[in-house]
Design a binder for these strands. Structure first.
Length: 418
RNA sequence: GUGGCCGUAGCUCAAGAGUCAGAGCGCUUGGCUGUGAACCAGGCGAUCCAGGUGCGAGUCCCGGCGGUCACCCCA
């Protein structure tokens, strides 16, 4: 019987968990700063919720099973259908725009690789009820940009590339390409930076297009072809994001439901970390017309975001330091005299009740070992309980400075609060 | 779904087909009965699983499982 960790799943030991929690808390803080509010939904949903939108490969990647009641259920592979249902149910009563976010686990049965596991956590941010326009779109992109920035990343560490779903259909229509072949064409554009030029040209020729014509369009300012992109660029510039955003028509996003602006965040290696865009028709589709709300949003995954942070030595060092601090107790109680243990434990309990993180040995231990333990755990202070009781020593471990303090909770708390 | 590379201790690695599979880090006990480092001595701990070839397999072959990377795809 196999009892090993399942493929694509991960365990989070305390040191790793501390860093991960730090990331999520920062995401949460940034979202709140942008006045987004948090929600969540069920991890398990009717499988039909996901079959509705798309079939084929995506359904094959569902973690799905029949439950004891005969219900076909699936672990959620994405948030959007759940979110659309939630929003549709109460949108009539809610003030628009809705700005919602969630940090939640998702499951997809895929082959794991860099930046991809079978269980992963995503931050989903969506804005509902504001028609397409540069301000709402910029608001969402600004939030996306603020996330890496909150970890000290800036221009050079990441870029946000922006395009619009309507850019290419106009281009194709002007050249007499069959509308039905739009997706085929977009797949070529999506790979234009990675694929060899001859390959690209051959595929374009099959569509009746000239490679140099397409390249010229890519090189030109997209705002000339689509003024709304120029307006969006100005909005983003006004938010101080001019150095991290760039208009780029090669951003097409594979998803059919995007209706306007689309964007992706890229790390320094050219890997997409997150993506999103405007999807004005999706709520109506998913709710069978029960609600019809314009929407713009994005999702960012924990795995890819961690890779992005790792690419920056400064950011990853800072995160590691913060995680270490989260892990360490503030105070290590050194019990130098076992006959005073009861007094010490009472004092430590009072410190804990006041919110201080306090560790102490659970049995007799040599004083030297206790200081070693305090050091190793990363405690900031040692409080030494010994024969001088009710006087105790409070030692700042980093500087090795020691002061005598009365062993009252208030006095000790004051000494360890600096 | 397809393919490359890789599975030895908790981690990083060593061991030409040949004795009893080693080291560093780690954890632990003591040296050290009221002050942390370093040091010293001891202890803990491994060949992913199952077949095959060989006198002999960690090493070669086959299958499985697992990891990783890329392709495909990416809600």
């Amino acid at each position: 019987m196999n009892t090993q960790l399942l493929t694509g799943f991960q365990e989070w030991h305390p040191a790793e968990f501390a860093a991960r929690r730090r990331v999520f808390e920062t995401w949460r803080r940034v979202c709140r700063a942008h006045a987004f509010v948090e929600y969540d939904g069920p991890v398990l949903e009717p499988a039909a919720l996901y079959r509705k939108k798309s079939g084929g490969e995506l359904v094959g990647q569902l973690f799905a099973f029949t439950d004891q009641g005969g219900e076909e259920v699936a672990l959620r592979p994405e948030m959007t259908p759940t979110l659309a249902r939630m929003v549709a149910a109460r949108q009539a009563q809610m003030r628009k725009p809705l700005k919602w976010f969630s940090i939640a686990p998702f499951f997809r049965y895929e082959r794991p690789q860099k930046g991809r596991r079978r269980e992963f956590t995503q931050l989903n941010c969506d804005l509902f009820g504001e028609a397409a326009g540069p301000i709402a779109d910029a608001e969402v992109i600004a939030l996306a940009a603020a996330l890496p920035r909150a970890f000290g990343l800036g221009a050079g560490d990441f870029t946000i590339r922006i395009s619009d779903r309507s850019l290419w259909p106009a281009f194709l229509a002007a050249r007499g390409v069959d509308v039905a072949r739009t997706d085929e064409f977009l797949a070529v554009v999506d790979k234009v930076e990675r694929a060899p030029a001859v390959e690209t040209d051959a595929k374009l020729a099959a569509l009746g297009l000239d490679g140099s014509d397409v390249r010229a369009f890519l090189a030109a300012d997209p705002a000339a072809a689509l003024p709304s992109l120029g307006a969006l660029r100005e909005e983003l510039g006004a938010r101080g994001l001019g150095d991290v955003v760039r208009l780029d028509p090669t951003i097409v996003r594979g998803l059919a439901y995007y209706t306007g602006m689309v964007f992706e965040i890229f790390g320094p290696t050219g890997r997409a970390v997150a993506g999103g865009g405007r999807y004005d028709g999706l709520v109506a589709t998913l709710t069978d017309g029960a609600a019809n709300l314009p929407a713009v949003g994005f999702a960012i995954g924990d795995v890819t975001f961690a890779d992005l942070l790792r690419a920056s030595p400064v950011a990853s060092a800072r995160l590691a330091a913060a995680a270490r601090e989260d892990l360490a107790p503030r105070v290590y109680g050194v019990i130098a005299d076992e006959t005073r243990r009861a007094d010490g434990v009472r004092l430590f309990a009072a410190l804990r009740a006041a919110g201080a993180s306090v560790e102490y040995p659970l049995g007799p231990m040599k004083v030297g070992k206790q200081f070693g333990a305090a050091e190793q755990l990363g405690a900031r202070f040692a409080v030494v309980i010994g024969g001088e009781w009710p006087e105790v020593k409070v030692k700042t471990l980093a500087t090795r400075e020691e002061q005598a303090v009365q062993g009252m909770p208030e006095a000790v708390l004051a000494a360890v609060s600096q």
